[in-house]
C-alpha cells in the first residue's frame, strides 16, 4: 500500500521554479532516498509536504487523505514527522523534557485538561516518562537525560531530535540530512538507528535527504534523484547511482 503520494507539485518563489511538477510516492517499511545537487528543491519539497510552504499546483495525499492545504501542526497530527536540517531542539528544556513534549498530543495540551482530568494527567505523566526513557535509551542519550539540550553536542542534538520523532509516534519520517556534519562514528550510530526503526516497525516510512552517497547506498532501497526542481530519476539505489547522467550532474564523475 502506498502511504505518501505527491502529485504534480510545483512551487515558484520570486518567479523561480524551485519545485517543478514533482510526482512521487513513498512506501511503508522502506527507507527512500531523495538526492540531488544543492538547490534541486529537496528541502523545499519537504517544506511543502509538511505545510510550511504551500504548493502552487498539485496535491499531497497521505494514507488516503488529502493534506495539501493543512497547516504544519495538522500535518504533524496526521503522523508526518520531520527532522530539520538545522536540528531545532528545544534548547532550554532538558533532553527528557524534549522527548516528553513530543509524547503529548494536542487534546492534552489545553489549559483546562489538568483541572478536568487530573488523574488521567498524572497517569499520562508516568507513562510518558517511561516512554521517553525508552526512546532516550534507544538513541543512547541516557547519561545526559537531565541536561539542557543546549549543552549537547551537535551530534547528540541530532540523536535527540530523532528520539523526539520516535516518541511522537510518527509513521512517516522526513529526515533532512541526518548525518551532515557528523563524524563517522556518529554517522554509523544514526544509520543503525534508522535501520532498526524500519526493521522493528514495517509501518514506518522514512524519506531521507542525503548528500553522502555511502549513506544512501547503505540504507536506502529506492532513490529519487532531483535536479532543477524535477524528479530526474527514480529507481533502485544502485541503479540510479550507476546512471551515467546522475554521475555527471551530481557526483562529478
Amino acid at each position: 500500500m502506498e502511504k505518501l503520494k505527491i502529485k504534480n507539485i510545483s512551487k515558484a518563489i520570486n518567479g523561480l521554479k524551485i519545485v517543478d511538477r514533482v510526482t512521487a510516492s513513498f512506501l511503508p517499511g522502506r527507507i527512500t532516498g531523495l538526492i540531488g545537487p544543492n538547490g534541486a528543491g529537496k528541502t523545499t519539497l519537504f517544506h511543502i509536504i509538511t505545510g510550511e510552504l504551500r504548493s502552487d499546483t498539485g496535491e499531497i495525499n497521505y494514507r488516503g487523505e488529502d493534506i495539501t492545504l493543512l497547516p504544519p501542526y495538522r500535518v504533524a497530527r496526521k503522523g508526518i514527522g520531520r527532522l530539520f536540517q538545522d536540528v531545532r531542539v528545544f534548547e532550554n528544556l532538558t533532553v527528557s523534557e524534549n522527548v516528553v513534549s513530543a509524547c503529548y498530543d494536542h487534546r492534552v495540551e489545553t489549559p483546562w485538561f489538568p483541572f478536568l482530568r487530573k488523574k488521567r494527567w498524572k497517569a499520562l505523566e508516568r507513562d510518558f516518562k517511561e516512554k521517553s526513557d525508552y526512546y532516550i535509551d534507544y538513541v543512547g542519550l541516557m547519561e545526559v537525560k537531565d541536561v539542557p539540550a543546549s549543552s549537547l553536542s551537535y551530534g547528540q542534538q541530532k540523536l535527540l531530535a530523532i528520539a523526539r520523532l520516535l516518541a511522537g509516534g510518527f509513521s512517516l519520517l522526513l529526515l533532512d540530512e541526518p548525518t551532515a556534519g557528523l563524524n563517522p562514528v556518529m554517522i554509523k550510530k544514526i544509520l543503525n538507528i534508522l535501520k532498526r526503526i524500519v526493521a522493528e516497525d514495517q509501518g514506518k516510512t522514512i524519506v531521507l535527504v542525503e548528500h553522502d552517497m555511502s549513506v544512501v547506498t547503505e540504507v536506502a532501497d529506492w532513490v529519487y534523484f532531483m535536479n532543477e526542481g524535477r524528479i530526474a530519476f527514480f529507481g533502485r539505489t544502485d541503479h540510479v547511482l550507476g546512471d551515467k547522467e546522475v554521475r555527471e550532474i551530481y557526483l562529478g564523475l
Binding site: 509538511t50 510550511e52 497547516p71 504544519p72 501542526y73 495538522r74 504533524a76 497530527r77 514527522g81 520531520r82 530539520f84 531545532r88 531542539v89 528545544f90 534548547e91 532550554n92 528544556l93 523534557e97 524534549n98 516528553v100 513534549s101 513530543a102 503529548y104 498530543d105 494536542h106 492534552v108 495540551e109 489545553t110 489549559p111 485538561f113 489538568p114 483541572f115 494527567w121 499520562l124 531530535a161 523526539r164 511522537g168
Partner: peptide, 28 residues
C-alpha cells in the same frame, strides 16, 4: 498547575523553537 502541565510544556517548546514544536503537532 498550568506551569507544569502539558500546556506549559507546549508553551516552552513553542518558545524555544516554534517550527520544531509545530512539527510535533503543537498549534502555535
Amino acid at each position: 498547575i498550568l506551569y507544569k502541565s502539558p500546556f506549559g510544556l507546549a508553551l516552552k517548546a513553542l518558545r524555544d523553537d516554534e517550527m520544531a514544536a509545530e512539527g510535533l503537532g503543537k498549534s502555535p
